[in-house]
Design a protein around this nucleic acid. Structure first.
Lengths: 249, 249
DNA sequence: CGTGCACGTTGACTTGGATCAAAGGGGCTT
DNA sequence: AAGCCCCTTTGATCCAAGTCAACGTGCACG
C-alpha cells in the first residue's frame, strides 16, 4: 500500500532488446531456438521497461497486451480479495515470464510488483502467437513454459494444503536456492528480496510464524539468517524437514 | 488406494469423436472455431476412451503424449508426496481439459482419476500444436485455456493461503454450482462425485472439518445435505460467507 | 435381500499457528 | 548524524482445525 510514494520520472525506455545478445536466453523464451530464429524473436521483443522498487509492472484488471521477461531484478505477483487479504502467488527472477495470467480474459488477474529495481523485456502477445505459428520450436517452448507454471502452482497447492509451517519454509528456501544456482549464483547464500510478510503470504503463514521458523532453523544449525541475508548451512538438513509431517507418520 | 479392485476388460475404444457433432464444443477446445475449422479438429481428436470409476486416465511419471477433453463423467487430479500425503489439485467435469501438466516435462506430473464412469476424447498433443499453427483461433483459444488454468490455480492458492474452513467450503460449492449451471444443470442441486476426504484434500482440510462445515451450513439453513446430494438453499448466504474473514476485520 | 464395509457424522480433547503486544535493529532521508 | 519508519524478533495467550474415537448409514456385493 505505501509503495505509491516512489515517484519515477522515467520508467519506459525504448531500448532494442536483442535476445540474441542476452545471456539469459538459456533460461528464457529463446531456449532451444537456432540463431536465426532468435533473431526473429529480437524483432518482437520490442522494448524494455525499467521499474523501481515498489512499482507495479501491471495491476489486476488492466487490459492485457504483452507478457514480460524479467531481464534483471525481482518481482512478486499477488491477488487481492475485496476485504484486503493478499495472496502472493509467486516470486519471479531473471529469465522468468510474467503476465501469463492475462491471456485468459485479456485482462490481468493479478498484480506484478518489482521488489527491487528491475528491468523487463516486453513481448507483445499477438506477435508472440504470430511467431510461434511460424517457429515450431518457439511454440513448443512457450507451451512448456505455461505448463511449467501450472505444475509449479500444483506444487504450491501441495505446500499450502498439506505441509506444516517449517516444511513450507524449508521447501521455499530450497526452491530459491535451486533457482539461484540455475542462474550462476551461490546455492547457499543469498539475499531475500521480500519481507517476512510477503514470504508468509506466499506460504500461507503469518509473518511471526515465518520469523519463528527462521529462528528455529538457525537454532538447529540449518541456516544462518541476518535480516534478509540467508546462508544455508545444511541443504540436507532442510531437505530432511520436507516430506516429514512429524507427529505420527 | 483400494480403487485397484475395479477390473475393466475394455477401456480403450476407437470411436471417431467428431467435435462437429459434440454438444460440448461451446465449452471445450472448439469454442469460437468456424464449422470448417471444427471439421479439421475432428481429424485430430483421434479416439475416445472410456474409464470406469476409480480408473486412472494417467499417472504421475507416465510419458505425456496427449491431452484429454472430458466428454462425460467426472475426474480428479492429484499429486502425491513420497510419504503418502495427497493434494487434490482439481476436479474436472464435462468439456474441461486434462493433461496440461504433462507438456512441461513430457511426463505427467499428477494423477488423473475418474470419479465416476467417464469418457474422454484423446487429443494427441503434437497434432494439436500442428493444427494451432494453422488455425489462429484454435491457437489463441488453447492459450486462453492454459492461462485460465493458471488463474484458477491462483484462486486455489488464495483459498488455501488465506481462507477459513467454512469460507473454503462455501467457495467450493459456489464454484461447483456455477460450473454445473454453465452445463445446463441446476445451479442449486447436484450430486457430489467426490468423498469428504477428497474435498478436504482439495481444500486443505481434514474430512471431519469438511463434514462439520456441511453440518453447520445445514443448521444455518444455507444448504440441505444428504450424503453426496447437495441442495443450495441460499446462494447469497454462501456468498456472504466468502470474503468475510470473521473475527476482527 | 441381507450384510459388510467404505463413507459420513459427531463428540471430546489437543495443538500448531494466529493474535496481541512490546521491544529491538537497519537503512533511508533530511 | 540524527531520527524515523518499517521490518523483524520474541513472548504470552487464544482458538480453529486437527486428532482420536465411536457410532450411523446406505450402497454394492454375494
Amino acid at each position: 500500500m505505501p509503495n505509491r510514494k516512489i515517484a519515477t520520472p522515467i520508467t519506459l525506455v525504448d531500448v532494442k532488446s536483442a535476445c540474441s545478445n542476452c545471456n539469459l536466453h538459456e533460461l528464457c523464451l529463446p531456449l532451444g531456438l537456432s540463431q536465426a530464429e532468435i533473431e526473429k524473436l529480437d524483432e518482437l521483443v520490442s522494448s524494455r521497461r525499467r521499474l523501481r522498487r515498489g512499482e507495479h509492472l501491471y495491476r489486476a484488471g488492466e487490459a492485457f497486451g504483452a507478457i514480460y521477461a524479467v531481464r534483471s531484478g525481482f518481482f512478486k505477483t499477488d491477488v487481492l480479495l475485496e476485504d484486503g487479504r493478499e495472496q502472493v502467488t509467486g516470486f519471479q527472477m531473471t529469465g522468468e515470464l510474467l503476465g501469463l495470467d492475462g491471456i485468459s480474459t485479456e485482462h490481468h488477474s493479478c498484480n506484478a510488483v518489482a521488489l527491487e529495481d528491475s528491468e523487463v523485456c516486453t513481448i507483445p502477445f499477438l506477435h508472440l502467437e504470430g511467431l510461434s505459428r511460424e517457429i515450431q520450436t518457439l511454440q513448443h517452448h512457450f507451451h512448456k513454459v505455461m505448463s511449467r507454471e501450472i505444475v509449479r502452482d500444483h506444487g504450491v497447492m501441495m505446500l499450502l494444503g498439506t505441509m506444516r509451517a517449517e516444511e513450507r519454509l524449508a521447501t521455499f528456501l530450497l526452491n530459491l536456492s535451486q533457482r539461484f544456482t540455475a542462474r550462476g549464483y551461490s546455492p547457499d547464500e543469498f539475499y531475500l528480496r521480500m519481507t517476512r510478510e510477503e514470504i508468509g503470504s506466499y506460504l500461507g503463514l503469518k509473518l511471526e510464524t515465518v520469523s519463528r521458523a527462521f529462528s528455529r532453523f538457525q537454532e538447529e544449525g540449518l541456516i544462518a539468517v541476518q535480516q534478509k541475508h540467508v546462508r544455508i548451512l545444511s541443504i540436507t538438513g532442510l531437505k530432511r524437514l520436507m516430506n516429514h509431517q512429524q507427529g505420527r507418520g
